[in-house]
């Protein structure tokens, strides 16, 4: 494992820690899209089914379990925690799951490395991860209000993708057998969407709306 990959994973992990910290300390999930969190949970569940049939390393197994547990934890807070659930922007967070899930499922059935259940589910998770941020992007555009931790959450999620691209470039040159065109294409799309997200984040930052935590 190279340093770009490790830094990318740590950035991904840190973004999740930030979101849990935000929810736990402020007892609020204002500005967070439950739709995006649900889609990420679906991404982790469909991708990490391989926990049952393949083993790569202790590191991978532990990280997969952390990602699964934390995504369910975030959803639990947003849905069931007495105080937190009241701060959820239900009226604004109206993005429909199927708009993303159905096209990703169809694409995974058509464009994949192997037409098997596990492979199609894995490919579906790759495609869905690329676009799962969209409900959050729409919510941010609507509310035009982003606090520090939400902004940092997005920053570290974007950094995770950017670092993974560096990791792929590194692996392209150092591992002749490593060629993951589907993953790379989806990763580029995903990073592009985060660039857009950053643009909206900076715009609201410039407008000086709700940026400092009390």
């Amino acid at each position: 494992m190279n340093l770009f990959r490790l830094a990318g994973d740590m950035s991904h992990l840190f973004s999740i820690v930030l979101i849990l910290l935000k929810i736990y300390t402020s007892k609020s999930c204002a500005g967070l899209s439950m739709k995006t969190q649900e889609l990420y949970t679906l991404v982790f569940v469909t991708r990490y089914l391989d926990l049952f049939y393949s083993y790569v390393s202790l590191y991978n197994t532990v990280m997969k379990l952390i990602f699964l547990a934390s995504s369910f934890g975030i959803l639990w807070y947003m849905r069931y925690h007495k105080q937190v659930k009241q701060t959820y922007d239900r009226e604004q967070d109206t993005f429909r799951h199927y708009i993303l899930v159905v096209p990703c499922a169809v694409l995974a059935l058509i464009v994949n490395n192997e037409l098997s259940v596990t492979e199609v589910l894995w490919t579906f998770s790759i495609y869905l991860e690329a676009v799962a941020i969209l409900p959050q992007l729409v919510l941010l555009q609507r509310t035009k209000n982003v606090d520090n931790l939400t902004g940092q959450y997005i920053f570290f999620l974007g950094a995770y993708r950017a670092l993974y691209i560096l990791n792929w470039i590194y692996r392209y040159w150092t591992e002749p057998k490593y060629r993951q065109y589907l993953v790379w294409a989806a990763g580029l799309v995903q990073t592009g969407l985060y660039a857009d997200f950053f643009y909206y984040y900076l715009k609201s930052w410039q407008a000086g709306e709700k940026l400092r935590l009390p």
């Binding site: 990959r5 990791n167 993951q180 993953v183």
Partner: peptide
């Protein structure tokens, strides 16, 4: 198999 390549990422 080609499908197992790259599955070492998260």
């Amino acid at each position: 198999s080609p499908s197992s390549e790259g599955k070492d990422e998260l």
